[in-house]
């Protein structure tokens, strides 16, 4: 299991990036809702090289209810990754399987 971060490192209701590549770009977006964490590949389905956020750990819309693509404003549901509005309407973010083990968020498997 690859540890990504401590659950406590994600403020409830917020998102963080994890699993940085050699250039420092986070491969995974983690969004915390209470004791649950939703994990998505940090790339908009619109393009093959379109990171979602606009700044380190900045992935959500103004009221924190959707994942925002800071390229063209697409909004994705946090729980199932479905795009509700934007260039990739009806498509979805790619899920990442994670588990929380003793307070640490880890890649599953």
């Amino acid at each position: 299991m690859t540890p990504l971060c401590r659950l406590d490192d994600i403020p409830d209701g917020s998102a963080v990036g994890a699993l940085p590549d050699a250039r420092g770009r986070d491969a995974v977006v983690l969004v915390r809702r209470g004791d649950r964490v939703f994990a998505w590949v940090n790339n908009c389905p619109h393009y093959d090289r379109a990171p979602l956020g606009w700044r380190k750990d900045a992935f959500l819309n103004g009221d924190g209810t959707r994942i925002l693509c800071a390229a063209h404003g697409a909004l994705f549901r946090i729980e199932d990754g479905i795009c509700e509005i934007g260039p990739c309407l009806g498509q979805g973010l790619t899920p990442v399987s994670v588990i929380i083990s003793e307070g640490t968020v880890c890649l599953a498997g």
């Binding site: 990171p51 956020g53 606009w54 700044r55 693509c69």
Partner: peptide, 30 residues
């Protein structure tokens, strides 16, 4: 350096010849 997300660049376009460097933004546009 401030943590903003580079999208494309730096580089130089052909049409227009302009150098470019695009960033994601919280306005939801590059």
């Amino acid at each position: 350096k401030k943590g903003y997300e580079s999208f494309w660049g730096p580089g130089r376009h052909k049409f227009g010849s302009n150098w470019f460097w695009y960033f994601n933004s919280p306005m939801g546009a590059h």
